[in-house]
């Protein structure tokens, strides 16, 4: 991108209206609404299941699930930990795989480029919309968890995994931290999806390929002999978000995970850019 004298508007202007329109499309999409509903159902199911299986006074069995009965906010913590290995990457793969390939298969890509939307700007906007989606899906899980937790369980002080107690406000702060961490990890998956999406005109193929990558990473993490490459896999760092429930906070795992996610975003974002800005659009 050459920074020449400003022609009409700044060259780097991204255009908020386009981003809002992208997000609007995301939210209006029936399939995406369904994904959100399914994700919101996870904490509800967990909450109800725990409520039905624990009898008053018999709770406090320790561990994550046991803590739920002590404090409702733990439903949200548990739900995030349940959905992060597979459900969230799935929700991201479906939407990210469609970003460019979906427009290409509909033919709308040629009209967007002819508007003109610069190719770099198109990618940035699509990626920013993915960022919103990642934050949305993690927030939905957390929020649904908090709501169902408050309804079904007491919500006073929060007993952390380390046994110490935090105030409710402190608990919510930790939940926000978990949501942000999960969203950042999902953004790394989204970057992979965005890149794959520039390679094909078949959105289903891009979705499947992205999901496959996410699952293969999970499998690789499960093989102890591949210990050497584990630190480079996103899935190895997903459950680090449980560190936010410890006291004192252990930040090293979170930091490693966050750095890795940023690395994935940079690498796959650059690959997507290199591919998309040199590609003939013949769809």
């Amino acid at each position: 991108m050459s920074v020449a004298e400003p022609l009409t508007k700044p060259v780097l202007a991204v255009g908020g209206r386009f981003l809002l329109s992208e997000i609007g499309m995301q939210l209006r999409r029936r399939r995406n609404q369904l994904i959100l509903a399914v994700l919101a159902a996870v904490p509800v199911i967990i909450g109800i299941a725990v409520k039905l299986t624990t009898h008053d006074g018999a709770g406090a069995t320790g561990g994550l699930i046991g803590n739920i009965t002590n404090n409702g906010i733990f439903v949200a913590f548990t739900a995030l930990i349940v959905v992060i290995p597979i459900f969230l990457p799935m929700a991201v793969a479906v939407v990210a795989g469609e970003t460019v390939a979906g427009e290409a298969s509909l033919g709308t890509l040629r009209y967007l480029l002819a508007v003109p939307v610069g190719r770099t700007r198109l990618l940035l906007t699509k990626f920013a919309a993915m960022g919103f989606w990642c934050l949305l899906i993690t927030s939905v899980v957390a929020l649904a968890g908090v709501i169902i937790g408050v309804i079904l369980f007491p919500s006073a002080h929060v007993t952390l995994l380390s046994g110490t107690q935090a105030t409710l406000l402190g608990g919510v702060g930790r939940l926000v931290g978990m949501v942000l961490y999960a969203a950042l990890m999902m953004l790394a998956v989204a970057a992979i999806g965005l890149f794959i999406s520039t390679l094909t005109e078949v959105p289903i193929a891009a979705m499947a390929a992205t999901l496959t990558v996410a699952i293969v990473m999970q499998v690789l993490v499960a093989v102890p002999q591949l210990h050497a490459i584990h630190p480079w896999l996103i899935s190895d760092h997903l459950l680090n978000l449980a560190d936010l429930l410890r006291d004192p906070l252990r930040v090293s795992g979170l930091r490693d995970g966050a750095l890795l996610a940023v690395g994935y975003v940079v690498v796959f974002g650059s690959l997507a850019w290199a591919r998309f800005t040199t590609k003939d659009v013949t769809s």
């Binding site: 009409t8 202007a13 255009g15 386009f18 329109s21 499309m25 009209y111 508007v115």
Partner: peptide, 8 residues
């Protein structure tokens, strides 16, 4: 949507 995409 197309109109929103147009920066100008």
């Amino acid at each position: 949507r197309l109109d929103a995409a147009d920066l100008t």
